[in-house]
C-alpha cells in the first residue's frame, strides 16, 4: 500500500499548498487524482515520490512509515517509486544523450552491467527506435523525449509509478502510446499507479479509481475544517 495520511505540504510554512490530504493506492491499483491546475496536486505527488518533505502528516509505504525525504530517504525506498513529470524538456538533463538519460538510474545505483539488457527491453516498450538513443534532448520532439523519461522511470523496475500530468503537453496518439506502455509495465509487474492530471476523460479511461482533489484535501487556502460535511461537493461523480 502507498498511503498518504493528513499531509500538509508547501513551500512557505505560512501558506501550505496542500492541506490535510489523504489517499491510498493499493498494490496493482491505478488511482487517478483529478484537480484543476495550481491546486497542489503536483506537490502531493512529489511528497508521495519522496521528493518533497511534508510539514505534517504521514506517508506509509507497504505499512512502513517514511521518515526521510530526498537524499535522506534510503535509496531502496526512493527507487521503489518511478516518477514521470509534466514537461519532458525540464525533466531531462539537456547534456545527456537519451541512452544515458535512460541508463542513468542504473549507473547511479551501481547496476551498470544491466544497462545493455534494460535498454534493449525498454526501447521498444516505450516506442522509441535505437537511432534516437544517441541524440540529445534538443534533437528529439517532446513526445519522443517523454517516452525516454518514461523509460528512465521504469528502468529500475519500481513497485509504484507516479505520473504527474505525464501527457498534458502531448498529442492524442502519443498520449495513448505512453498510457499503453505504462499499462503493459503494470500488467507485467503488478506495480501500483498514481496518475495526477486534469483531463477527466483520460484519467477515467486509464485508472481503476478516480479521486477528485476536493475529496482528497481540504480546500486550498484552508479555512475549511476537516469535517467532511463542509467540503464542496465533488464536481466529478465517482468513476463507475
Amino acid at each position: 500500500m502507498l498511503e498518504l495520511h493528513d499531509i500538509t505540504a508547501g513551500y512557505d510554512r505560512k501558506a501550505p499548498v496542500v492541506r490535510n490530504a489523504s489517499l491510498t493506492v493499493a498494490p496493482g491499483e491505478a488511482v487517478g487524482l483529478l484537480g484543476p491546475s495550481g491546486c497542489g496536486k503536483s506537490t502531493l505527488a512529489r511528497v508521495a515520490a519522496l521528493l518533497h518533505r511534508p510539514e505534517s502528516g504521514t506517508l506509509l509505504l507497504d505499512g512502513e512509515p517514511v521518515r526521510h525525504w530526498r537524499h535522506r530517504a534510503p535509496r531502496d525506498l526512493r527507487t521503489a517509486i518511478g516518477v514521470v513529470f509534466q514537461q519532458p524538456r525540464l525533466s531531462a538533463d539537456p547534456r545527456l544523450r537519451l541512452i544515458d538519460l535512460i541508463a542513468e538510474p542504473l549507473r547511479a545505483t551501481g547496476r551498470r552491467d544491466e544497462v545493455p539488457d534494460r535498454i534493449t527491453e525498454l526501447t521498444p516498450a516505450v516506442g522509441l527506435t535505437p537511432d534516437l538513443l544517441d541524440r540529445r534532448p534538443h534533437e528529439v520532439s517532446d513526445g519522443q523525449l517523454q517516452r525516454a523519461c518514461l523509460a528512465r522511470a521504469l528502468v529500475l523496475r519500481p513497485r509504484w509509478l507516479i505520473c504527474d500530468e505525464m501527457t498534458a503537453m502531448l498529442d492524442a496518439s502519443t498520449t495513448a502510446a505512453l498510457v499503453a506502455a505504462v499499462e503493459n509495465y503494470r500488467a507485467a509487474t503488478g506495480a501500483g499507479l498514481l496518475a495526477v492530471g486534469h483531463d477527466q476523460t483520460l484519467l477515467r479511461r486509464w485508472c481503476d479509481r478516480l479521486l477528485h482533489w476536493d475529496e482528497v484535501a481540504a480546500a486550498g487556502m484552508g479555512k475549511l475544517p476537516r469535517a467532511s460535511g463542509l467540503r464542496e461537493p465533488s464536481v466529478v461523480p465517482p468513476a463507475t
Binding site: 512529489r46 515520490a49 519522496l50 521528493l51 530526498r70 537524499h71 535509496r75 526512493r78 527507487t79 517509486i81 518511478g82 516518477v83 513529470f85 514537461q87 525540464l90 525533466s91 531531462a92 538533463d93 547534456r95 542513468e104 538510474p105 547511479a108 545505483t109 523519461c149 528512465r152 522511470a153 528502468v155 529500475l156
Partner: peptide, 26 residues
C-alpha cells in the same frame, strides 16, 4: 528545483552524483 534533479534523486543518485553529473556540467 528543476524536475531533472528530482528525477535523478528519484533514480537513486547520491548527493555527490547529482553534483558531479548534473549540477557541475550545467
Amino acid at each position: 528545483s528543476h524536475p531533472y534533479i528530482d528525477a535523478a534523486v528519484s533514480g537513486g543518485a547520491s548527493r555527490w552524483r547529482v553534483a558531479v553529473r548534473h549540477l557541475l556540467p550545467a
